[in-house]
Nucleic acid binder design. Structure first.
Lengths: 212, 212
DNA sequence: TTGCAAACATGAGGATTAATCATATTTTGG
DNA sequence: CCAAAATATGATTAATCCTCATGTTTGCAA
């Protein structure tokens, strides 16, 4: 893929007004993201004020807007970093799946890992838990679902080469999307019920995958 | 249930600063909700301005806040009306289910009906499609999921009296919650893919219900 | 080195919009 | 018929996102 525009490195601001090219500005952008992250963890992304982000990062408000077109862009950038981490987890987890039994084990493990991750990461929890007001964020999550859906579809197609590829692709996409929805649901209730919800999702998906 | 506070009629504002008791004010509140509904259909709830709602309803801005504590309350009120309609659909659809075959038919029909409803109702689509920024709205949707989850659980328990009731309850709740998530997903993509997604969800849930 | 263009830095202030509140009016129950 | 509760009103306040005009620094070619 030859892109004439700057290749977007993982972790680079999602939508930027200007890519920071100099070392100095790259560090400042990192400070901004760090400040935003801390504030989201403390009070949630809704309550996070741009002026606070600037203050905590030790930069004037104008510098924030030098690199991020708006508040949503900061959040999307953080979300994409977490999503990239999650995708890496999934990629590794599914890497050497050889048979359906292996897939079952890997999938169940991944679901639990994700749930733990959500519980442990306040920023991830906040961004995912429903603050989907921003269209850009929803698009980003949808794109992520498509990618991890594709990963699962690849494995399923490898294990079931004779089946309808289109249907497998859709099923895998839905499984992953609903996995994200399950996480959202699970973290919105108490720990015990959350675990029960996650388990119900696992049961359902495993049954579905066995039936393919 | 004897409530000393005013019994909240279906369709009454979710969170009100003051319940409209006089005929005059009840009509005005309806005009406000109608105006809000029209504006959401036209430009989405984010872009809907309180001043516009007031203007279109033919009331001063102050009257809006006389009955609704904030902008979110208007949206929640509209959401709850739609949810109440949806619950009625589900209640009717599940009413005379006698066996698993009947449940399968009823469930598949309900899912399709819901999807059509979402496609046809721009307000419902807007409110559900992700503008979950408001905590009150999320809580409202969660409560709705619990209710319709309970309806499904009742049917499943009736058909499988010997099974673990706790597990059935959780499964039913998850099925309904993920149904809502499926709708959100389906309306965020094109019509054809949306239908495929809805179908994948149906397949998955029907398989799960058969396995109980 | 020098000089220039591009990148970067700055923060007071503009613009939008949700929500208030003091005051005036209408309705209701006794 | 009157007092208290409910309702009506809209200019104003408050909060906050984001802009923009201006000044500074950096990279790089000549």
């Amino acid at each position: 893929m030859s892109q004439t525009v700057q290749s977007k490195a993982v972790g680079a601001p999602a939508a930027v007004r200007r890519q920071p090219t100099q070392q100095r500005s790259r560090e400042r952008v990192e400070r901004m993201l760090g400040a935003a992250s801390a504030l989201i963890a403390e009070k949630g992304s809704d309550a996070m004020k741009m002026s606070e982000v600037a203050e905590r990062a030790g930069v004037p408000i104008g510098s924030l807007y030098q690199f991020f077109p708006d508040k949503g862009a900061i959040i999307v950038t953080l979300a994409e970093r977490y999503n990239a981490l999650g995708r890496e987890c999934i990629r590794e987890g599914l890497a050497d799946v050889k048979d359906m039994a292996g897939l079952e084990r890997a999938f169940a493990g991944l679901v639990d890992t994700y749930y733990e991750l959500f519980l442990a990461e306040p920023v991830m929890r906040d961004i995912w838990s429903g603050t989907q007001a921003d269209k850009a964020l929803r698009d980003s999550e949808l794109a992520d679902s498509r990618i991890i859906g594709g990963m699962l579809a690849d494995v399923l197609m490898r294990l079931h080469p004779e089946d309808d590829r289109e249907e497998i692709a859709t099923t895998a996409f839905v499984i992953m999307s609903l996995g994200e929805a399950t996480m959202r649901l699970a973290i919105s209730v108490g720990r015990a019920e959350g675990q029960a919800i996650v388990n119900a999702y696992k049961r359902m998906v495993l049954r579905e995958m066995l039936a393919i």
